[in-house]
Amino acid sequence: MIDFGSVEVSLKLATASTLLLLFIATPLSWWLANTKWRIKPIVEAVTALPLVLPPTVLGFYLLILFNPNSVAGSLWLRITGDTLAFSFVGILIATVIHSLPFAVQPLQAAFESVGRRPVETAASLGANPLDAFATVAVPLAKRGFLTAAVLGFAHSLGEFGVVLMVGGNIPDKTRVISIDIYTSVEVLDYRQAHILSIGMLCFSFVVLAALFVVNRRYSLNDEAR
């Protein structure tokens, strides 16, 4: 009997994480693309840390942070009556942090290539900064948004180390696809592992291929201009 509980958890996690990622990464990338502050490289390094840091290290610190005896953990427990560690919200926070560079970097690159000029032009036509951002910068950076969303979603869907550290392996709650595959192999349920693995492989390939096709079409359009 194949159990698709982990697929549901993973899809829920990846969807919520993608929405949160775009919400956080959009202002952060815009700021990074435009700031002249000296602390910019520091912020960039912090944002990029999850790319190089072993997921277990990130997971370990988050676990300490989520501990009901810590400030953040106890505050969360008092407000919601639930612990952050070993909960869906806990793995969601961990996933968002771990996937942040996958959303920030393409968005920052897109905003940088849009440049200041279109926004300054919009301002000269009477658009306030938020208006200019929404009506000029965002539409011009749509390719960056697409890449950020796709990479963020795909990366969240394949999350393993951080989730295992922070969320454990609770069926229908924190057991995601990759953990399910790992567990299935451990108990020699190769059928479950095969089905989930081939699903992940196909999905990842299709998503990336689609992204490259769309990006190619955009760049051909840009060249035609």
Partner: peptide, 28 residues
């Protein structure tokens, strides 16, 4: 702030918004 100065700018490169049509640009 620049957007409150009511200044029209026309530069060497026209800086039209490529995601809008001609009338979209004019209406902006």
């Amino acid at each position: 702030k620049p957007f409150k100065r009511a200044i029209g700018c026309v530069f060497q490169s026209p800086q039209l918004f490529p995601h809008l049509s001609v009338s979209g640009n004019l209406e902006y």
